[in-house]
Nucleic acid binder design. Structure first.
Lengths: 197, 197
DNA sequence: GTTCATACTGATACCTGGTGCCAATCCGAT
DNA sequence: ATCGGATTGGCACCAGGTATCAGTATGAAC
C-alpha cells in the first residue's frame, strides 16, 4: 500500500494523459491506484482539463485548419510571405520525419516544405505543382530547423504558369534546392495537362 | 409557423452539422425552429452521432495519424517488390491529402508515394534521394487510388548511385512521372553531397 | 504526548448533452 | 370523421465530469 510521492504521481499522470488523451478519470484511477478524487485534484493542480475538454480541443485543432486559410495547408511555419514575390518557411525535423536508423529526414518531408511554400507564394485561388526539378544537397537531420526560401522567378499571370525557385537551408548550409513550375488558375478555364500541389 | 418539409430539414441539418460539427442539439433547435426531440429523431434517422461522439471521432482521426501517418516505411501499401528491379505500391487519396477547396491531392503526397517507393526498391542498408526530376501529369483527386510503379534503370551498386524511374497511375491514366537518383551506401562510408529520402 | 498541516478519500448535489421510451398533439389526406 | 405520419412533451437514466464539505491517515513540530 505504499504511496508514491505526489510529485512523481503528477509526472506519471501528465505522461499518461499526454500519450493517451482519451483516458477517463476512472481509468486513471486503475492506473495510478488512487481515488478518483485524488485524480481530480491532481488534474486541477496540473491544469489538465477534463476528458471532454481535451477531446474538444483536439477536435478544434484538427478542424480549424480545414476551414482556415491555405496557410494551414503549408508544411512548416510561414515566417514571411510576399505574394507573387517570395516567401520563407521554417520546418523542424522531428522524430516522425526521419529514418529511425540514420536520423536522416526522409526526402518527401523536405520536398513537402518546399512544395507547399512554392504553392502558397502564388497569389491565386488555385495553384498546383506542374513539375519540379529538385536536388537534395545534403541530408537534413533530426532536430535541425529547415528554412526554405522561395522566389517567384516568373509569375506568369496571363500564361497560367509560374516559376518558383526554392532553397532550403539549415543554418547557412543549403540542404535542398528545387525549381518548381506551378499552374495557376489566373482566370483561365481550368487544367489541361495540369498538375497538382 | 409554416413547417419545412422533413426532407429539406434533414438536408439542412446534415449541412449545418457538416460545416459546424460543434453544434449542440439545443443550438440546432434555434437554427431549424423545431423542438429538440425532432432534432434528435432527425439525427437518429440520418445516423448522425451526438456531439460528443462527433468530437471524439474528430479527435481520434487527428490523433491516430500522428502515430501512423509518419508511416514507418513507405507511403502507400507495397503490392510488389523485387529488390533492385522494380516495385509497385498503392496509395488512396483521402481527405487529409487534398486541398479542401478543390479536392485535388497536394503534390507532396503523390511525390511521397513515389519517393518512398524509389527508396524502398533499392536493396541497401541506407538509401537516400539525391535528386529528382518530376512531373505532375494530371491532378489526383479525393478517393482515387494511385498505383506507383518503380523501375530500377541502373542499380549502380559500385558507383553508389542508382537511377529509378517511377510512374504513378490512376486506372490507366498517368498522373505522375519521376526520375530519381538515389544514393546507396553500397559498403561505401557515408554521404558526401548525398541527399535524403 | 498533543497539535497541526498535508495528503487522501468519501459523499452529495449539480451540470451538460445527450439516449430511450411513452404519451399527447397537430395536421393533412382519404 | 378518422387514420397515420410528423412533431412535441415529459420523465427516467447515463457518463463524465465540477464544486463543496466532511472525515481519515500520516508524519513532522512543539
Amino acid at each position: 500500500m505504499e504511496r508514491m510521492p505526489k510529485k512523481q504521481r503528477h509526472q506519471q499522470l501528465a505522461r499518461l494523459i499526454e500519450d493517451n488523451p482519451f483516458l477517463t478519470d476512472r481509468e486513471l484511477t486503475r492506473l495510478l491506484k488512487v481515488s478518483i478524487q485524488t485524480i481530480r485534484l491532481d488534474r486541477l493542480e496540473l491544469a489538465i482539463p477534463e476528458l471532454r475538454e481535451r477531446l474538444k480541443l483536439m477536435a478544434e485543432r484538427s478542424y480549424d485548419p480545414v476551414r482556415s486559410l491555405p496557410l494551414h495547408e503549408v508544411i512548416g511555419d510561414i515566417l514571411d510571405l510576399q505574394l507573387d514575390k517570395s516567401g520563407i518557411s521554417m520546418f523542424e525535423i522531428r522524430d516522425e520525419h526521419v529514418f529511425s536508423r540514420s536520423g536522416i529526414a526522409r526526402g518527401h518531408h523536405v520536398f513537402a516544405q518546399a512544395n507547399s511554400l512554392a504553392v502558397a507564394v502564388i497569389n491565386d485561388e488555385i495553384a498546383l505543382t506542374a513539375s519540379a526539378d529538385i536536388r537534395f544537397i545534403r541530408p537534413a537531420r533530426l532536430g535541425e530547423k529547415c528554412i526554405a526560401k522561395a522566389y517567384v522567378r516568373s509569375s506568369g499571370v496571363q500564361k497560367g504558369k509560374a516559376k518558383v525557385e526554392v532553397f532550403t537551408y539549415v543554418g547557412d548550409e543549403m540542404v535542398f534546392q528545387g525549381n518548381f513550375v506551378i499552374y495557376r488558375s489566373a482566370g483561365s478555364a481550368d487544367e489541361e495537362g495540369a498538375g497538382e500541389a
